[in-house]
Simulated scan of single mutants.
Amino acid sequence: MKKTISIISIFILFTFNALASVGVIERYSGEAYVLRGNKKIDVVRALKLERKDIITTKKNAWVKIKLNDNTLITAGKNAKLVIDDYLYDGKRKAKASFSFSKGVFKTITGAVGKISPKKFKVHTPNATIGIRGTEFYVDASRPQEHIICTRGTITVTSSFGEVEVEAGRETFAQSKQKPQTPTKANQQNIFKIDLAIGIHHPTATHEERTLIEKSEGGLIKPLIQSIPVNTPNIEPVVSENTAEEETSTNIEESTSVEESSSVEDTIQEEVTTHETTDEIKDTAPVIPIHNPCPLPPSR
């Protein structure tokens, strides 16, 4: 009797774990949906995700997924992502497997990548990506897949061979070939993917934005145009490094404002010591206004 109860308990626990939520839709833009068995579910914020879910985005859409171990996956437009397998108990049992069938993606691994890095896999049509505590990009929108590592190290494997890609380097994978020898990553390629998945780079110059737009042949043009100009409450999807850079920029701007106020007070004191307006103009220093984040002109 006890043995029967134990078997039933294990079965119930297994079933519960299999059907339990593995993560949520943290943010999204545009039209996207989840295929779950025979059901088609429209993506909404905080929608719970399960194993075997298929997440699909349409034109000019993107979604950001947060899994239970804090792994973050952002998919751009016309993308298809499958949660093949996922397990995380908050301790030592951890594994994750995803298929990026098409589109562009950014992945920042969480606890699973630290606890069981060998059990974290991303499959593309032409290769399999293994990780070691990593942040990486995948562009599977073309027959020749583009894979960039921006933190940690990844391995890119096909049936014809394997390459190791360190941070700051990129490789290309295509059917029936070994992945290319990694080379130094091009920052403009990262900008392209970031813009395609809804990430706004405040440090990108107008020339860089124009070059990115032309090189992509219109893929991200609507997204560039949709980025508000001089909008302080924009909420870009950012990695931890980008957040630290923005915090540093805010501190510098705040310091600049304080210094500017101090200079203005000094000018006012000098104004009171002169008898004519001409003398004031001659002695007052010019305060340059520097914009650290040039934006494109209005279109």
Results as ranks from 00 to 15, higher is better:
I197G: 08
S226F: 07
V138S: 08
E235S: 11
I224V: 14
Q188S: 15
H201D: 14
K176Y: 15
Q188R: 12
P222L: 11
S175A: 12
A243N: 12
Q174G: 03
A204M: 11
E235Q: 15
N241L: 15
E166P: 00
F160S: 05
G152Q: 07
A204R: 02
E244D: 05
L219T: 06
E162M: 13
E208L: 04
V165S: 03
I197K: 14
H200P: 01
G133E: 15
T205V: 06
I147K: 04
E235R: 08
I147Q: 08
P182W: 04
T150H: 04
T134F: 11
Q144G: 00
E240I: 10
A196D: 03
V165C: 11
S215N: 15
N233D: 15
T171V: 12
T183K: 12
I190M: 04
T134V: 03
I154A: 11
V163W: 01
N186R: 12
Q174F: 04
A196R: 02
T155F: 04
K221D: 08
Q188P: 00
Q225F: 05
V238N: 08
S158L: 15
I197E: 10
T203P: 05
E216F: 05
G198I: 12
Q188C: 00
Y137D: 06
D194P: 05
C149L: 09
N241M: 05
K192G: 09
S239V: 06
Q180I: 00
T155D: 14
H200F: 08
E162P: 00
V165T: 10
T242M: 10
P228A: 03
G161E: 07
E245F: 09
A173L: 05
K221P: 02
S239N: 11
E245A: 13
K192I: 04
F191M: 10
A185G: 08
V163I: 10
K178N: 14
S141E: 06
A185N: 02
T153P: 00
F136T: 03
T153A: 12
R142P: 00
S175R: 14
N186L: 04
T242E: 14
T157V: 07
E213C: 13
P236S: 09
E213Q: 15
R169K: 04
G168S: 01
E245W: 11
F136Y: 11
V238T: 13
P182R: 14
I220H: 08
R169F: 15
I212A: 08
E162C: 13
Q188N: 09
E245L: 13
Q177P: 06
I220C: 09
S226P: 14
T183W: 02
